Amino acid sequence: FGSSFTHHNIFTSGTVFLQCWEYGIPLCRELAYQYETLYDYQSLSWIRKMEAAYYDNIMEQQRLEPEFFRVGFYGRKFPFFLRNKEFVCRGHDYERLEAFQQRMLGEFPQAIAMQHPNQPDEAILQCDAQYLQIYAVSAVPENVNVLQMDRVPDRIKSFYRVNNVRRFRYDRPFHKGSKDRENEFKSLWIERTTLILTHPLPGISRWFEVEKRELVSNHRFPKSSSTL
Results as ranks from 00 to 15, higher is better:
residue 130 Q to W: 06
residue 148 Q to E: 14
residue 129 A to Y: 07
residue 102 Q to M: 15
residue 128 D to S: 11
residue 150 D to K: 12
residue 125 L to N: 09
residue 100 F to Q: 05
residue 117 P to S: 09
residue 114 M to E: 11
residue 146 V to S: 03
residue 112 I to P: 06
residue 141 P to Y: 01
residue 137 V to H: 01
residue 171 D to L: 11
residue 139 A to V: 00
residue 114 M to W: 12
residue 162 V to E: 06
residue 111 A to C: 02
residue 160 Y to D: 00
residue 164 N to R: 10
residue 116 H to F: 10
residue 177 G to K: 06
residue 166 R to I: 06
residue 167 R to A: 12
residue 107 E to T: 09
residue 159 F to S: 02
residue 110 Q to P: 08
residue 170 Y to G: 05
residue 147 L to A: 02
residue 156 I to H: 01
residue 148 Q to K: 12
residue 162 V to P: 06
residue 173 P to V: 03
residue 147 L to Y: 01
residue 101 Q to E: 12
residue 175 H to A: 01
residue 139 A to D: 00
residue 134 I to H: 03
residue 107 E to Y: 15
residue 167 R to L: 10
residue 107 E to D: 13
residue 116 H to I: 08
residue 155 R to C: 09
residue 136 A to V: 09
residue 108 F to E: 04
residue 159 F to T: 05
residue 171 D to Y: 09
residue 129 A to G: 10
residue 125 L to H: 09
residue 170 Y to V: 05
residue 143 N to C: 08
residue 104 M to Q: 08
residue 169 R to H: 05
residue 165 V to L: 00
residue 154 D to K: 08
residue 169 R to W: 05
residue 149 M to Y: 07
residue 146 V to D: 04
residue 135 Y to W: 13
residue 125 L to K: 13
residue 131 Y to S: 05
residue 105 L to M: 12
residue 157 K to D: 00
